[in-house]
Simulated scan of single mutants.
Amino acid sequence: MRFRLTEDQRALRDGMRELLARRFGPEALRAAVGRPGLDRELWRELGAAGLFALRLPEVEGGVGLGLPEAVLVFEEAGRALVPGPLVATHLAAGTVPGAATGEAVVTAVGGGGLVEWLAEADVVVGEAGDVREARGLREAVEVRSVDPLTPLHRMPGGGPAARPDDLFVLLTAAEQLGTAVRACEAAVQHARTREQFGRPVGAFQAVKHLCAELLVRVEVARAAVYAAAVTADPVDIAAARLLADEAAVRGARDCLQVHGGMGFTWEADVHLCLKRAWVRAERGGSVTESEELLAGELLIEAA
């Protein structure tokens, strides 16, 4: 199957990229790192842009688009490293008042009982799909998050959550893809401009190989994520999740290598990509579940 974006899909993707570049560019990202709390004004702007109501029917006040379009805008959100429980709020747009417009912030219980942005959320969707007010979850315990832009709490027990909704996993994979794209772009830009021994570091073979591997992982993950958005098949979504997680985590690691020593400093943005990718990889539950689902399907086909 050959899959190409339509003109409307490209316009949607480009429009979201322009909005995020204007509203949440590098300076805003850095400011968010040093500022506690969720930017509610930005959240409402994303709601006004249709991010949360994208798949709601027009008769219900939504945009009336489909899963492929949602994947495109969440890829852009991942590329911009927009903080907040975007996926949970999007999925709750049809059931939680105010979620579609960005007036309400909705979070969800993820892998290992982890809950993102609990202190800032209005509503929490539980493992069984039950909806509760966030302020009522006094039993949740705050835990230290590796990502400065993703505060975390853990529900009592901390055991594995119920198998996450497939759409939750796919949209998270789209965010991972966007972060992998950002890491790839950052690595290539640094390789072109940073000079060592009178030459751009990108002229050296080892750096060329790292950049090439970054691009390959991005494009393979993109093909898997886009295909899963078309089929909505659980096996395709599992494959997309595995490839997107790898592209985001390994991509950020390789981007650090391309940057050398400066890549490990707090002043560089590369570490933010890696830390966000780590946290998102835990959001969808154990990676083993996705691996077993995919392996089971492959065994059936081989039989």
Score class of each variant (00 low, 15 high):
A121V: 06
R132Y: 11
E127H: 03
A32Q: 14
T95K: 05
L29H: 12
R10I: 12
V33D: 05
V106T: 02
G111C: 08
V33F: 06
V96C: 06
V71S: 13
L72V: 08
V123Q: 09
T101V: 07
L72S: 12
R30N: 12
A28V: 11
R30P: 10
R30F: 06
R79G: 02
G34Q: 07
V59C: 06
P97S: 10
F52P: 11
L72C: 15
A48S: 14
L20A: 03
A92W: 00
R10S: 15
A32D: 02
E41L: 15
A88C: 02
T107W: 03
V87G: 02
L38N: 14
R10K: 09
R132H: 11
A28T: 10
P36L: 01
L114W: 15
W43H: 03
L20N: 04
V115I: 14
V125W: 01
A77M: 07
P36R: 01
L91H: 04
G98W: 05
A70Q: 09
L38W: 03
V131H: 11
G47K: 10
E127L: 09
A88S: 11
L81D: 04
A99T: 00
E58H: 06
V33Q: 08
P26A: 03
G102P: 10
V125L: 07
E41D: 05
V109Q: 08
V115R: 11
F24N: 00
A100E: 00
A48D: 08
G15K: 09
G62W: 07
G78I: 06
R35I: 08
D39Y: 01
V96Q: 11
A108Q: 12
L65H: 07
V73K: 04
D130W: 01
A93N: 00
P36G: 02
R17W: 08
R17Q: 12
L81T: 01
L29K: 13
L65C: 10
L42E: 00
L51S: 03
L91I: 07
A119T: 08
V96Y: 03
L114Q: 12
A80I: 02
